[in-house]
Computed example of a mutant assay.
Amino acid sequence: MRMIIDHRTVQVVFADLQDSVVDLSGTNSPEVIRRSAGVLGKVAQMLNIPFTVSVAPRPGGPGVLAELPQAPPFVRGGPCCWDDRAWREAIAARARRTLVICGVTSEIVVLHTALDALAGGYDVIVPVDACGGMSERTENAAFRQIEAAGGTVTSVAGLVTGMVRDFTDPTGRDVITALHGLMG
C-alpha cells in the first residue's frame, strides 16, 4: 500500500522519550532513537505539525531528550498516554485524526497508546526507528498487534516522504536536508 499522508491531518506523540528510559532500549540503540525522534521533531516544526510529549514519572524529573522540540510534558501515572485525560483532551482539541506515535518501550506505551487511539477512531502510524523495545521478539509482537488493529508501521523516512513529495520547493529542500540527519 502506497503511503501518501496529508500533513495537515497529523499530530505527533513523543512517549517516554526520556534520557533514562531511552537508554534502556534493547532494540534500537539510544543514538538511533535520539536521531530519529529528533529528525521527526524538526520535520514536525517545519510542517507546523502539532506534537505532545507524554512522560512516565521518573526520579529527578522528566529528563526529556534534548533532541525533541520543547513542550511542557504531560506526566501520566500509567502505561498508556490514552489514560491521561488532559493528554487525551489536548489530542482531541486539535481535530487531527492521524497520530504518529513513537517512544520507549514499544511493547508498553507505544502499543497501548496505539491500540486505544485506533479504538478511538484515530489513524495510527508508528515509525519504528523512533521507538525502542525490550527485545526484538517482544517489540515485533507489539508491532504486529498494531498492524492487526489497523495501524501502520513504517520508518521516519517513509513517514516523512509520504507527507512531503516534492524536494524542489523550499520546504521540500529543508525536509530532505533534515532526513539526511538520519544517516548519522
Rank of each mutant, 00 (worst) to 15 (best):
R2I: 02
I4R: 05
H7R: 01
R8P: 00
Q11Y: 06
V12T: 12
V13C: 12
L24N: 12
S25P: 14
S25H: 03
S25A: 12
G26R: 08
G26A: 09
G26P: 10
N28Q: 13
S29W: 01
I33L: 06
R34D: 15
R34A: 11
G38I: 09
G38D: 12
K42Q: 14
K42F: 03
M46G: 02
N48F: 01
S54D: 09
S54C: 07
S54G: 10
P57S: 07
P59V: 00
G61A: 05
V64Q: 09
L65W: 01
L65I: 04
L68V: 07
L68T: 08
Q70Y: 04
A71E: 11
P72N: 06
P73W: 00
P73E: 01
F74R: 02
V75H: 03
G77K: 04
G78T: 10
C80A: 10
C81N: 08
C81A: 03
W82Q: 03
D83K: 02
D84N: 07
A86L: 08
R88M: 07
I91F: 03
R96D: 11
R97W: 08
R97H: 10
G103L: 05
G103E: 06
V104E: 01
T105D: 11
E107S: 13
E107F: 07
V109D: 15
V110L: 02
V110N: 02
T113F: 00
D116E: 15
A117P: 14
A119Q: 15
G120L: 15
G121R: 13
Y122M: 12
V124H: 14
P127W: 11
V128E: 15
D129Y: 08
G132I: 11
R137I: 15
T138V: 14
T138C: 12
T138P: 14
E139H: 13
E139P: 11
N140G: 15
A141C: 14
I146T: 13
E147V: 12
A149R: 14
A149Q: 13
G151V: 10
G151P: 12
T152I: 12
V153D: 12
V153L: 11
G158L: 05
G162P: 00
G162R: 03
G162F: 06
V164E: 09
R165M: 06
D166A: 06
F167E: 04
P170M: 00
T171A: 04
T171S: 06
G172P: 01
G172L: 06
R173A: 08
V175H: 01
T177Q: 06
A178C: 05
A178N: 08
